[in-house]
């Protein structure tokens, strides 16, 4: 826990917070372009956030302390995960503090608090969104755990830094069946957890289909800003996780500033590529019926399970 370690962590958090809205703006721009629209500029999300921060905070009638606590918990958990996930260097300061399970459960903490906040307002929409979110999380959660277990088995430890460095050490494992299966499983879960298209339409406000939007319907002003930022941050964190765990090249293995710069560039490229892929895919597929989503997540669970069995037999 050296001072430089903390510095790197804070740098990493600042970097991700800065990048997250821009990345979402880029994804919206790509979708617009593909749909033949010019679309808002890439920095539009930042403008929205600044506007929201300036707005008056409205709290509806029968809400409790969860309503005002949820945004803070969401943004804090996302930021903390951003600090732990090895974006820049494998030996980041927080390596011993949180391992893969800690990361997953911090994100889960955020999801739970979000659905509690949805319920807290007591509106029908909040309840609907929360119950749908919990249904999806209930099915997605085992997949994440099993996929991580597959990863940590092959690298012998569940610390993120260790996994990344072990993949760096022998590149063949990156292409091995268990990491491919684990990647596929985690990709599906990322889409489910961050509310991207096949599972939930991020831009839609149609009551029947929305899950994430329904939960934050009651929020306004700064709280809404925090929630939006947290949503973007979670997206970046998930993509970063996917990128660095399975395609770790370019990550710094030491803490010198030069290496960090190179690593930052590399991770930015990787995340942008992944985001672009998601944006393109979103244009071409329609939203799944709510009760088709479990089948999708069940498929991802089977992939994760195969990853584990394969990792045991092949390792």
């Amino acid at each position: 826990m050296s001072v430089s370690g903390i510095a790197v962590a804070l740098l990493q958090v600042a970097l991700t917070i800065a990048v997250a809205p821009v990345l979402v703006g880029l994804m919206r721009k790509i979708r617009a372009r593909l749909e033949g629209r010019i679309g808002p500029p890439i920095s539009q999300p930042w403008r929205d956030l600044r506007k929201l921060l300036g707005k008056q905070r409205l709290v509806s009638a029968n809400t409790g302390w969860v309503f005002s606590l949820a945004p803070l918990v969401l943004i804090a958990s996302a930021a903390l995960v951003a600090a732990i996930v090895p974006f820049l260097s494998t030996r980041s300061a927080l390596d011993q503090v949180g391992d893969l399970f800690a990361v997953v459960y911090l994100l889960l903490l955020g999801t739970v608090f979000l659905s509690l906040a949805g319920l807290d307002a007591g509106t029908a929409f909040g309840g609907m969104g929360a119950s749908r979110a919990m249904t999806i999380t209930a099915i997605a959660e085992p997949t994440v755990l099993v996929a991580i277990f597959a990863l940590s088995v092959s690298s012998g430890s569940s610390n993120l830094g260790a996994i990344v460095s072990s993949t760096l050490a022998n590149p063949s494992t990156a292409a091995s069946p268990q990491s491919l299966l684990a990647f596929a499983a985690l990709a599906v879960v990322t889409i489910a957890e961050t509310g991207r298209l096949p599972v939930d339409n991020p831009s839609a406000h149609l009551e029947l289909t929305m899950i994430h939007e329904a939960m934050i319907l009651e929020y306004s002003g700064p709280d809404l800003a925090l929630l939006e930022l947290a949503a973007h941050l979670r997206l970046v964190v998930f993509l970063g996780l996917l990128a660095n765990l399975f395609v770790p090249w370019g990550i710094a293995t030491t803490v010198q500033p030069l290496h960090l710069l190179g690593a930052a560039a590399a991770v930015l490229v990787k995340i942008t590529v992944l985001a672009a892929i998601i944006a393109v895919v979103e244009v071409f597929i329609a939203k799944l019926r709510l009760f088709r989503v479990p089948e999708l997540l069940a498929a991802s669970f089977v992939l994760a399970f195969l990853a584990v069995t394969v990792s045991f037999f092949l390792a």
Partner: peptide, 10 residues
């Protein structure tokens, strides 16, 4: 397994 955790710090 060679894994560390620090609930306090988290």
């Amino acid at each position: 397994i060679q894994a560390g955790l620090s609930p306090l710090l988290l």
